[in-house]
Design a protein around this nucleic acid. Sequence first.
DNA 1: TTGTAAGCGTTATCAT
DNA 2: ATGATAACGCTTACAA
Lengths: 340, 340
Amino acid sequence: MSKKATIYDIAKELKITAATVSRALNNNPKISEKTRELVQATATKLNYKQNKLALALKSGKSKNIGVVVPYINRIFFSSVIRGIEDELYPKGYHVIIAQTHDNKEKELKILQNLLNEQVDGILISSSYSNNEKHKLDYLVKKNTPFIFFDRKLNFPNISSVTLNDYQGGYDATKHLIEQGCMRIAHFLVDQELELYKNRFKGYKDALEKSGLPFLPEYVVTLKSDIEAGREAAKTIMKLPLPPDAIFSSTDYGLLGAVQYLNELSVKIPDDFCVVGFSNAPFTQFLETSISSVDQSPVEMGKTAAKVFLEQIENEQTVKICKNVVLPAKLIVRKSSGKIN
Amino acid sequence: MSKKATIYDIAKELKITAATVSRALNNNPKISEKTRELVQATATKLNYKQNKLALALKSGKSKNIGVVVPYINRIFFSSVIRGIEDELYPKGYHVIIAQTHDNKEKELKILQNLLNEQVDGILISSSYSNNEKHKLDYLVKKNTPFIFFDRKLNFPNISSVTLNDYQGGYDATKHLIEQGCMRIAHFLVDQELELYKNRFKGYKDALEKSGLPFLPEYVVTLKSDIEAGREAAKTIMKLPLPPDAIFSSTDYGLLGAVQYLNELSVKIPDDFCVVGFSNAPFTQFLETSISSVDQSPVEMGKTAAKVFLEQIENEQTVKICKNVVLPAKLIVRKSSGKIN
DNA sequence: TTGTAAGCGTTATCAT
DNA sequence: ATGATAACGCTTACAA
């Protein structure tokens, strides 16, 4: 395989200069038809392909953007990335992905690396909480546009695309109340993260609005996995007055709870209703399908990409900052379908 | 935000030359301790960060690799990518992802683009079948290493990492036979793709080995989704002598079939056994959990990454080509657990 | 319309 | 041990 052809090779072949070749290739108006055709012909003949690296170095734009997530194989994140790539590929951008494994130091390094790679923007779902966000301060202050999605950090003048988690929590709880549930428990994942706090707040406000008491013992903090959910269910079912419903911020945790309730022969939805969060694929496939709040991840990715594009296009003129909040969509299934 | 600092800024500050700065930064042995320290100090002071783009142009190595898949949000592919990124990030590589949407022309363009971007390698699960692989001929012949994973194309001297689909099909079928099933149907997805053919072949060989007849009417070709699976089940259950088991190349198709069988009140596993392929997450969460063949996607990704690294490291000396075949792992669950 | 030359930020090859 | 210079492949004033 011979070396890759450059514009110099084309130039030499035609006994003209590289500048002319460049212009011809870029359809510069002030170039004769003849040379343009000649150049393009020899370009294909020599199988010339533009070296984007050189272009990037020259222009200062790499046409690469970085997407940073905890784990790429979580369905929520891979769906967001799907949306981002679908939106950005037609605009000539390449998507570089990196996983933080929810490790803060690693996240910092990744961001540094991406910036060194001269990415044109960074879309990130951060592992940091708002308490420690100052550690990222010097990064977001650089020229490279940052866009936070889902897990947002509150920096002034930084764009974000998030779900209306509060509304999701509110709707889910209200729905359970409408089903006649009176003692609704809540599975809370992580007080540190804004989005879980917001779902929790939605839950509390829905209770209050309906005149139901908020009972701290009905709130369990747990990891987002099946085993933890099972344990959480054990805990609340041991209470003197056990709940008759769960609104869970995690589908996986909820699944564990449902499994435990099944073992106790608690009938869902007749005696106990549950609603999850995330609309994980499995929720709809269970015999007793699980109601859940959908996060429209693909849409979120597309939106984040659009916000990025807007920001880039207006770079010179005004610095745009946009904070988009997407609606949460409660999907009612059998697990909370007492009435209908 | 001031412009990014370059080695020239450091040089100017210290009244030395950029070459010296470069050497100091790269820990070149022939540099005095003093200058090294001085340089490193001013580097941090000016918040200097190496521009990887310039380095890439100079060295001809971008430290980027391209990963090309049909859809990034399919759990199998996102898991493979997870493995790839986990393996390659510590080696200083960035992973660029691109989705073909199973569109062959798009795949071609993507590959062309990635090559223009000067990626150091391409890991791909191709949409092409071996019949049309010649269209990619001129691409794989370039200097950039190609590695096929899962969906492999048979090019001479091109590496690949695949699953032993034949063995997966064989084991699944054999297992069903051992459960006492006598009339095993097969859900086949796409005759064009090698891997489905191999699973099918494993199925046939297992039947033959056990002296069971191969009946063409027990083989249904279908799309990989629930509705198609439901239809397929309808078809085979209408046969004069309906089967008593299904080995399906698709978990989703199988789920549709299971749903239909439930409606017919066919008892699984007592009267009917099923085994799927892919070990989709939902298979283990169903009340009647579904047996399936696991593909170890994360492992596959890691392996593909390792093959790439090996190939790059020995670039100068020998051209390495490796064809790794990973074992398929049958996971037995309730849906085929008659005996135990 | 085309050529000349500088520059993007590095590193490598000469010298000194 | 350090400096000068060229080179990677491209674009773009400025000249002609």
